[in-house]
Simulated assay, not measured.
Amino acid sequence: MKKILPVITLGLLTASGASFAADTSGPYIGAGIGVGIFSAGDYADDLGSGDPKSSGVAYNVYTGYMFNRIVGVELGYNDYSTSTYDKNDIKTKPTSISLAANLGYTFDNGLRPFALIGLSSTNLHQTGNALILDKDNTAALHYGLGLDYTPASLSGVGFRIAYQIDAFSVDSDINIKNGKLKKTSYTMGAGMAYAAVSYHF
């Protein structure tokens, strides 16, 4: 994956002289693969473990509609791979369904830097010594940055490199106070850096 992202980035930049169709509106679909990133913050500290280590391939599928060169809307399913906590029999496999505005600008050469901002429903799928109380269907803030490239010569086929994250708060009975478990709220984030291929209708 580390070799794929630089190659696509170089291709996007060197192809900037290509022409692009004037009409940039319409629907699109895409799919990407990448590297998952999971941050547990204070939860990992209170658990007595470092941040969980991600393994496997993260992926997403998405569809959207561009209203013009600047504004679009995007619906996605995101799988952030599996994360394991050191010294604890706990695994987390966060997934989310996201709905976000796609804000950016599509240049005549087909390049489009963009930002995603919206909401998602995130599920942690935690197993093992699970202590998180609301690990299912947690509301999250979905956001990201990326670059799309859709050359006219490929008849609607496009490419994307991007980073996105779902940030959310969960409750857990993890802190022991006076011999009793104490419910505490923790902020976490599940994200991915990915490369994708899309088709614009």
Rank of each mutant, 00 (worst) to 15 (best):
L181Y: 15
D166W: 08
T150K: 01
S172N: 07
S39H: 13
F201H: 02
I70N: 04
T127A: 11
D166G: 10
G156P: 05
A15I: 10
G144M: 01
F201G: 07
L13A: 13
L119G: 13
H142R: 04
D51G: 08
K53C: 00
G72R: 00
S153I: 15
P151H: 07
D79Q: 12
T63D: 04
S155L: 11
G50S: 09
L99N: 08
Y28G: 03
G11N: 08
N88A: 13
M192T: 03
G179S: 05
T84E: 10
I37T: 10
D45M: 12
A21G: 15
H200W: 08
T9I: 14
T63P: 05
K2R: 14
H200V: 09
I176W: 10
G158H: 02
I176C: 06
A162L: 06
L154E: 08
S49W: 01
S83R: 00
N60T: 02
P6T: 04
A195Q: 03
Y85H: 01
S19H: 11
I4M: 08
A44W: 07
Y163L: 03
F159E: 00
Y28C: 07
Y43N: 12
K135E: 14
G191I: 03
I70H: 02
Q164L: 09
S169I: 06
G146P: 08
I70S: 04
G156Y: 00
T82I: 05
G128Y: 03
L133V: 11
F38V: 15
A139D: 12
K91R: 12
L10V: 15
I70K: 02
P27V: 11
G179F: 08
H125D: 14
G128W: 07
N129L: 09
S172A: 15
D148K: 06
P113R: 07
K177E: 14
V7W: 05
L119S: 10
L47T: 05
L103G: 06
G17C: 12
P52G: 02
A22T: 14
L119F: 14
A130T: 13
D136A: 12
D173T: 13
F201R: 00
N123D: 15
A162K: 03
K183Q: 15
N137G: 15
N102F: 00
S96F: 04
P27M: 09
I33E: 02
S19K: 11
T63C: 11
R112T: 06
G191E: 02
I174S: 05
N123F: 03
V7M: 11
A18S: 14
Q164A: 14
G17K: 10
R160L: 06
I4G: 02
K135R: 11
N123Y: 05
S81C: 05
N175L: 15
